[in-house]
Design a protein around this nucleic acid. Structure first.
Lengths: 147, 147
DNA sequence: TTGTTAAACGAAAATGATTATCATTTTAAA
DNA sequence: TTTAAAATGATAATCATTTTCGTTTAACAA
């Protein structure tokens, strides 16, 4: 996975540039966030880190994720039911497509989104900084299984 | 506010139809949800209800809001920072425009949203059920104040 | 109108995700 | 290697929300 390598390198560079320390636990959290396209939860990251570093604390995972969030190197997806999910591969706002049956989260391409943002800005006078866009539905595989 | 009256009546009818009891506390919560376009929090609703019924419990507000949510008579807006907000005037999914400075939440009209949903469905094969769409930015008033 | 009963209420405890605290360990730089 | 500041790990605290449970009340029938 060459793209993940570069994301990981970019994250490490950013930490070094701002004089944050590079610890084994941090590297592991970064690696998981950069390399996974499954939008993992903190709990998932925690379990994965502990496979290699069994003494790692949950607090450490939270602290690292929070740090990356502040550096804009991870995108946080909050849900009302609790249990945020994180995207370290694409840390900028982008739409998500969530299967309500199997809970998979997919990143679709959406050409037409730019037009929506433009319409909104010109209609309301808002200066649009960011967005959060989730679509909920049933993925093709789960539609199959239902029948 | 004639529109709010009818929303309130609709909510009450729905409760009656399903044999839920009409209590003074419930009526008050419904009234606030139906009549406010400010997307109030549970805490806000609680304080407002207590002006008329000072013994009301916070749990009662939560229970009523949860009930309305299950009946699809209120839309819940969750945020990662915590503190959900509720829309009882328009309980169906619709875009929101949130000012990151004054925390106001506005309901914009967005003609172009339908096209986005269509594009998404045809591109991914998902059956789209619902969505959550938030734009974050700075409202015209707060832009003024900055200068 | 009154009596009955299940539903709703109120107060407080429990929960669950996240954050803060602080003593101990470790990184990074001299 | 030494050292100082930062990070870690364990645990307590926090905060929104949910659950529990004894008491009250709405709804309906007699």
């Amino acid at each position: 996975m060459p793209q993940n390598e570069s994301r990981l390198a970019h994250m490490l560079d950013k930490l070094k540039a701002q004089h944050f320390r590079i610890t084994p636990q941090r590297i592991e959290v970064l690696r998981i966030l950069a390399g996974s396209d499954g939008h993992p939860s903190v709990e998932t990251i925690y379990e994965e880190v502990r496979r290699d570093f069994p003494t790692t604390s949950l607090a450490t995972v939270y602290k690292t994720v929070t740090l990356l969030k502040e550096l804009n190197e991870v995108l946080e997806l909050g849900f009302p039911e609790g249990g945020n999910r994180y995207d370290g591969a694409r840390p900028y706002p982008h739409p998500h497509l969530i299967c309500t049956t199997c809970h998979r989260i997919i990143d679709p391409d959406l050409e037409s989104l730019e037009g929506v943002t433009r319409e909104l800005a010109s209609e309301t006078g808002f200066q649009i900084i960011s967005h959060r866009l989730d679509f909920f539905g049933i993925c093709p595989e789960c539609q199959e299984k239902k029948n």
